[in-house]
């Protein structure tokens, strides 16, 4: 069997992608920088940087620090606001034959709903990812991601504001992520994305100062992959809606692990910084993995992991 017979078309509920590889929010900005490197139409979807109603200045520097096989970040959702997104960023993204998913962020359920209403009318916005799990802003994690009923309230508010597909992005900084995934499912989410970053910190022992101005930051990269993979596996067993796997994916082998664990699609985050060509290389790598095994579609391997003994 040849690679030509593989069809990577992926369905996440009502959302159809040309392949299961997306770029994760906050690691791809609004596409322009990567468009100088490769054709963005190679991607299944682009999840744009967290977008709020009003512009946000973000946290003071230092904002990032590399750790063992990973990095900490505390950017603080710096963005120019949803109006700037619609006027200046979306028209550029619409040139490409890919899906545009807008990651929305707010301080209250009403703000998420307002963002959803604004984006509902936008041509070229294919879905919304609801960011209730950013660990680096005052509101966010504590209010929404740490409380299943607050998670339900936000997702429900967004659901009532738009008929576009919605994908809440879940925090790993909870005792049992499945409870939150079920709350999202009950509120009418089309899928769940997981995981966001793990809260961590680092200290400079010479200066005895924290490495980040924000003290804590979100840990990402290959070091969090085993945790993400476990959570994706558990969540895929717990809900009927599709799971989008995120966490330390740098190579096609990483992506295949997530598909086997039960993810319908994956997002490449920090991997875009490690190797700017990571996302299109992963698309090709998944195709090669399937072709070598005589398989036609990613759906042939989704959730097909078996016990070691």
């Amino acid at each position: 069997m040849t690679a030509g017979r593989v069809d990577l078309t992926t369905r996440i509920g009502r959302l159809t992608l040309s392949n299961p590889v997306m770029t994760a929010s906050g690691t791809f900005a609004f596409g322009r920088e990567f468009a100088e490197l490769y054709d963005l139409s190679l991607l299944g979807a682009i999840v744009v940087k967290g977008t709020s109603l009003e512009p946000r200045r973000g946290n003071p520097p230092p904002r990032i620090f590399e750790t063992a096989s990973g990095m900490l970040n505390a950017i603080g959702l710096q963005n120019d606001g949803v109006r700037s997104f619609l006027d200046e960023k979306l028209p550029f993204l619409r040139q490409f034959d890919t899906r545009v998913i807008v990651n929305i962020v707010g301080n209250r359920a009403g703000e998420y709903a307002e963002l959803a209403r604004i984006l509902h009318d936008a041509q070229g916005v294919d879905a919304l990812e609801i960011n209730i799990s950013c660990p680096n802003v005052e509101h966010g994690h504590a209010e929404f991601a740490g409380d299943p009923s607050a998670t339900f309230t936000v997702v429900d508010a967004v659901r009532k504001a738009t008929s576009k597909p919605i994908l809440p992005k879940l925090s790993p900084n909870v005792t049992d992520i499945r409870v939150f995934a079920r709350a999202c499912e009950e509120a009418g989410a089309d899928a769940v994305s997981l995981i966001n970053t793990l809260v961590g910190t680092a200290i400079d022992i010479r200066t005895r100062r924290f490495r980040l101005a924000n003290v804590t930051g979100g840990l990402s990269g290959p070091c969090i992959k085993p945790v993400a993979l476990r959570m994706v596996y558990q969540t895929a067993q717990a809900v009927r809606i599709p799971v989008v796997g995120i966490g330390g994916i740098v190579t096609a082998e990483d992506a295949v692990e997530f598909l086997l664990a039960g993810a319908t699609a994956v997002q490449v985050g920090t991997g875009n910084f490690v190797n700017p060509m990571a996302a299109p290389e992963i698309v090709e790598g998944i195709k090669g993995y399937l072709a070598e095994r005589g398989l036609n579609s990613p759906s042939d391997i989704i959730g097909k992991v078996e016990k070691a003994i």
Binding site: T27, A29, E33, F34, R63, I64, M71, P276
Partner: peptide
């Protein structure tokens, strides 16, 4: 100190 070096991560502000 930079993350991506190409304007994406907004880490080197």
């Amino acid at each position: 100190y930079m993350g991506c070096g190409m304007g994406v991560c907004v880490g080197c502000t």
